[in-house]
């Protein structure tokens, strides 16, 4: 093969890859038919961390103590011992709740239960699974090899590995539906939604929560609103409060295909540490590329046949050359 042919082949292959990917691109996944999730309203959160300690109770994890703050769980971020955490936003003198300037507010971090989860897409061993009906993303350590691709493939850095154990495993929020807990299957709500004293963390079907979030976007700042608490389909109580000035943004409606755990706030999400996500999920791009190159292994098989033929022909030539 001449150099020109080689170049042609290289460029041809490149072009083929490009065309193939644009033809077979897979769109974002759609929400599961009965997707359940949570709505976190940052403006209701008072930072009491009742949800954090309830989560530890459900998952049998010890409190994390930061410095001498021994009175309560002072975990600062998600870790293998903290699957749900409340973080604080502060600006300037931090006096006004829910104000971007000179204000403060609280933000929850836990698995977002993505509609198109990166962790599920990248896991080689199907150790991350998304329930077809509820959309809940669970982890199955029995088949996990610990490659930690789920950690780098999650836009929110949610899965955490137990680095400090020799025989560690990945830990993440499984929306209280992990084997042995199964609160959702039993018709209960998540531990954090149950423990939340303000209704800031609200449990329910994704559709209903999205509707509620849209309703709150429409409310007039300053008027009174009865915020449901617990499970949106059957609130155990209501919390009456003056409506704040919401940012017109429901995090999780569309980001990277959307999430089942959604957030609303009166401080913009980039200030609250949410990642810069576009609407198209990275998982869908990765899978599009992978499947266009490897659709049914047809391309590799074809390439192998061609290579085998060429190599066979050329090794024969060499052997003849050697014999002379």
């Amino acid at each position: 093969m001449k150099r020109r042919d080689f170049l042609k082949a290289t460029l041809g292959g490149t072009a083929a890859t490009l065309c193939a990917t644009s033809v077979e691109a897979r769109p974002n996944l759609e929400p599961a038919p009965q997707a359940v999730g949570m709505l976190f309203d940052s403006t209701l959160c008072v930072g009491c961390k009742a949800c954090v300690s309830k989560c530890k109770e459900v998952n049998d994890m010890p409190p994390v103590i930061d410095g001498d703050k021994t009175t309560w769980d002072s975990a600062r971020d998600l870790s293998d011992q903290t699957l749900n955490v409340i973080k604080v936003y502060r600006d300037g003198n931090a006096t006004t709740k829910d104000s971007e300037v000179d204000g403060y507010c609280f933000e929850k971090r836990s698995c977002m239960h993505c509609v198109d989860p990166g962790c599920v897409s990248v896991c080689p061993c199907t150790a991350m699974r998304q329930d077809k009906v509820t959309g809940i993303v669970t982890h199955h350590p029995d088949v996990c090899i610990g490659c930690r691709n789920c950690m780098v493939g999650c836009p929110y850095n949610v899965p955490q590995f137990e680095y400090n154990k020799l025989f560690g495993q990945i830990r993440k929020c499984e929306l209280c539906n992990q084997p042995g807990v199964e609160r959702i299957n039993k018709g209960q709500m998540t531990g954090c939604a149950e423990a939340c004293p303000t209704g800031s963390t609200l449990f329910g079907p994704r559709e209903a929560l999205l509707e509620e979030a849209r309703r709150r976007m429409q409310l007039k700042p300053g008027e009174l609103y009865r915020y449901p608490m617990g499970d949106i389909t059957r609130p155990y109580n209501y919390h009456e409060k003056i409506v704040p000035t919401y940012k017109q943004h429901i995090w999780g409606e569309k980001e990277a295909g959307g999430t089942s755990v959604m957030h609303i706030s009166s401080v913009s999400f980039d200030k609250l540490g949410m990642p810069p996500l576009e609407e198209r999920s990275a998982a869908s791009i990765a899978e599009s590329v992978q499947h266009s190159v490897y659709s049914f292994m047809a391309l590799p098989a074809l390439a192998l046949a061609g290579l085998t033929y060429t190599v066979r022909k050329n090794t024969r030539d060499h052997d003849e050359g050697d014999d002379q």
Partner: peptide
Amino acid sequence: NWNFNSVM
């Protein structure tokens, strides 16, 4: 166990 969507 194979997840054919996985590059890994």
